[in-house]
Design a protein around this nucleic acid. Structure first.
Length: 413
RNA sequence: GUGGACGUAGCUCAAUUGGUAGAGCCACGGCUUGUGAUGCCGGUGGUUGAGGGUUCGAGUCCCUUCGUCCACCCCA
């Protein structure tokens, strides 16, 4: 018995209706991003496993249990990239761009995480992201958020809100972390089991635990925003001012945390309620320490990524390939001529399907099913006089004219 | 990884206490070579997700497995 072949769990096919949306996302991204002088890069899907261990963090879920990692035929440990930022920074360093000024990049393509599949959460999913390498001031943070907002607006995605926070920096986060751990230890008997582990690994995660008891305990927990050093505090205040100047609406949410190790200072998320538990549509933040930790000079950076499948779910359906004209041959003698006409129309940029001759009724029916706007009727009459008969399928209106006139008619309607 | 719901034709769904697997829609072919959407006729379509078990008999009950969906978790 032959086993039914199917795609790997959590890995979906991009069929025409979905791809139509991806293409729109890509087109809009190219347009909007280029207005901020951001250039496209195409980066490898396979990377050394070590890259993500060192950047995303060995203790994170992404690296510790979700990576598709394996040994290749040589001796190297390689993996399917689980995110885009680390690879971008690796490429930046490898190309020797550290003395070439600010780099503004964007990329799109598949990422891989071996999670339990859910709606809006796939094992292979597409991300579109941007990385601004070498930008430091809060103005850049505000502008990248304005670009994200512009991007979502241009996709006509509504009902999304922006939340921002500051995660502090190497100067102020350790002291805050200690204060938080002290607070959590004092009330640890009221925390859930996973939060007990979080106190050790990533205490800030307790702040966004959904357990009621944990939320009650963390309600009066110290917040990062109150413990920012003066540099971080100024950065955050200036960011908010710039966002106001740019008319980008936002809400400060002191509970936003990051699972990836490389983030610091500004963190942000565009969130919707329409996607259930997977409500984060676009997210990112600063990662001022990453370049240095991968062996480069201290370089301040900010970026974001959006899940294309999640964006697509928020977009209305888009028409897939449309047919402008179906060419119909009436009688065997008209067939060669009709093929020629069809080809001629295609060279004029029209989308043309030939109905293949035969019974006229069958051909018209085919034209209707193809969703064609026009039918080009070619019979002995047309062949003889060098004409083309065009019927508008929506109105039923039909005219006979020269081929030149016909092309003009098809192009304007 | 944990918990829960659900898998019957391409799609939406039927099938009495366990007793012959059906309908609608879609798609396809034809209605004898100049007019479709909106007519008429016709045939195809399923090892009931897969595998085992109980039974005279399983779509229905039990076990395993795969998949989808939901929540946790995580994140885009």
């Amino acid at each position: 018995m032959t086993k039914k072949l199917q795609s790997i769990r959590g890995i979906h096919d991009g069929l025409p209706s979905e791809v139509a949306k991806w293409r729109k996302i890509e087109d809009v991204a190219r347009r909007v991003f280029s207005s901020h002088a951001v250039s496209e890069v195409r980066l490898p899907i396979l990377e050394p496993t070590e890259l993500f261990v060192r950047s995303v963090g060995e203790e994170t879920d992404i690296v510790s249990k979700e990576m598709y990692a394996f040994k290749d035929q040589g001796s190297g440990n390689i993996c399917l990239r689980p995110e885009g930022t680390a690879g971008a920074v690796r490429a930046y360093l490898q190309a020797g761009l550290t003395r070439s000024g600010i780099q503004r990049w964007f990329y799109m393509g598949p990422m891989f995480r071996r999670e339990r599949p859910q709606k809006g959460r796939l094992r292979q999913f597409q991300q579109i992201g941007t990385e601004w390498i070498g930008v430091s001031g809060p103005v850049a943070d505000a502008e990248i958020l304005a670009m994200a907002q512009h991007f979502l607006d241009a996709l006509d995605i509504q009902m999304v809100r922006l939340e921002i926070n500051s995660l502090g920096c190497a100067a102020c986060r350790p002291a805050y972390r200690d204060a938080l751990i002290t607070h959590l230890n004092a009330c640890s008997e009221h925390l859930c089991k996973t939060c007990h582990e979080r106190i050790e690994n990533n205490p800030m995660r307790v702040l966004d635990c959904k357990n009621e008891s944990c939320q009650a305990q963390s309600a009066d927990a110290p917040e990062m925003l109150a413990h920012l050093c003066s540099d971080c505090d100024t950065h955050f205040s200036n960011l908010k001012e710039s966002l106001n100047a740019l008319d980008v609406p936002y809400k400060v949410n002191p509970r936003i945390v990051r699972g990836l190790d490389y983030y610091n200072r500004t963190a942000f998320e565009f969130i919707t309620e329409q996607l259930g538990a997977q409500g984060t549509v676009l997210a990112g933040g600063r990662y001022d320490g990453l370049v240095e930790s991968l062996g480069g000079p201290a370089t301040t950076c900010i970026g974001f990524a959006a899940g294309m499948e999640r964006l697509a779910m928020l977009m209305p359906d888009i028409k897939t390939q449309t047919v402008d004209v179906v060419a119909i041959a009436l009688g065997d003698l008209a067939l060669p001529y009709s093929l020629k006409i069809a080809e001629q129309l295609r060279r004029e940029g029209l989308s043309v399907v030939h109905a293949g001759g035969g019974a006229s009724k069958r051909q018209f029916k085919l034209a209707d099913r193809e969703g064609a706007r026009f039918v080009a009727i070619i019979g002995s009459n047309e062949v003889e006089h060098g004409l083309i008969s065009l019927k508008n399928l929506a109105t039923g209106e039909q005219t006979s004219c020269s081929i030149k006139q016909g092309i003009a008619l098809l192009k304007i309607s």
